[in-house]
Every structure is written in structure tokens, then in C-alpha cells.
């Protein structure tokens, strides 16, 4: 009797597992590392340290995509390019901004507008 109950219990557990698997969304598309936290920290306290942490995060994201798409998330290359450009590293900055347009052609109008605005300054 106890054996049968255990079997039923296991069957129920297995069924629940199968149901939950079908409902679950897929794995993340991108590897964000600690972008959300580092970005928030930089926004709340723009120190040299928090800026360097954000730079390290951009590089991590750029080099270390391990999830489904294996492509850097939308906006990250442009954000890094923007940071470099504003620091005076205009060539590398523009290069990353252009990489954003290569990776995501639909960003062309917006990123081009940002480049124009930067060059007008």
C-alpha cells in the first residue's frame, strides 16, 4: 500500500515537473552580468570607481556572452561607445557606436542621430 502511494506521489511529482517545463519561458537571451546593479550604482554615485566598474561591465558583456543569442544585448555597444567618446577617445567611441549599427541595423536612425549630436558639440 505504502509502495503504491509512493509511486503515485512520484508520478504526480513528475507530471507537475513536466507541466512546469512546458509553461516556463526559455533561458535568457543575453548575459547581463551585474549591469543593472553597476549602472544603478553609477547613476546614484558617479565616482571614478563606479565609472570604472561600469566600464569593466561593458567589457564583460561585450566579451562574455554565454546565453542563447551569444550576441551583445541591444544598446550596450552604443553605451560603451558613448562613454569612450565623452572621455575624449572619439575614434574608439565612434567605432563602438558603429558596431551597434552593424549588430542591430534597426538602430541606425537613432545611433546616427546620437553621432551627429556628439559631433556638433
Amino acid at each position: 500500500m505504502g509502495h503504491c502511494r509512493m509511486k503515485i506521489g512520484l508520478l504526480a511529482l513528475f507530471s507537475l515537473l513536466m507541466i512546469s517545463c512546458t509553461v516556463m519561458e526559455d533561458a535568457p537571451l543575453y548575459t547581463w552580468y551585474d549591469y543593472g546593479v553597476v549602472r544603478a550604482r553609477y547613476r546614484k554615485d558617479s565616482t571614478v570607481e563606479s565609472k570604472e566598474a561600469l566600464r569593466a561591465e561593458y567589457i564583460n558583456i561585450w566579451l562574455g556572452q554565454k546565453t542563447r543569442r551569444k550576441v551583445v544585448p541591444p544598446g550596450i555597444a552604443a553605451e560603451y561607445g558613448l562613454m569612450l567618446y565623452k572621455e575624449g577617445n572619439t575614434q574608439d567611441g565612434l567605432s563602438y557606436l558603429r558596431k551597434e549599427m552593424e549588430l542591430y541595423p534597426e538602430s541606425k536612425a537613432c545611433v546616427s542621430k546620437i553621432i551627429n549630436q556628439l559631433q556638433e558639440k
Binding site: L29, P73, P74, G75, A78, L82
Partner: peptide, 18 residues
Amino acid sequence: CEKGYYAFSPALCCELFS
């Protein structure tokens, strides 16, 4: 972004709207 869209990040939006 995780939903599969090209979303503009807040940092880019701020620059765009500046």
C-alpha cells in the same frame, strides 16, 4: 531586450533626448 525586442537603453534615450 530579454523579450526579443530592440529596446533603447535609458542612457541612449537620455543622450537622444538631450
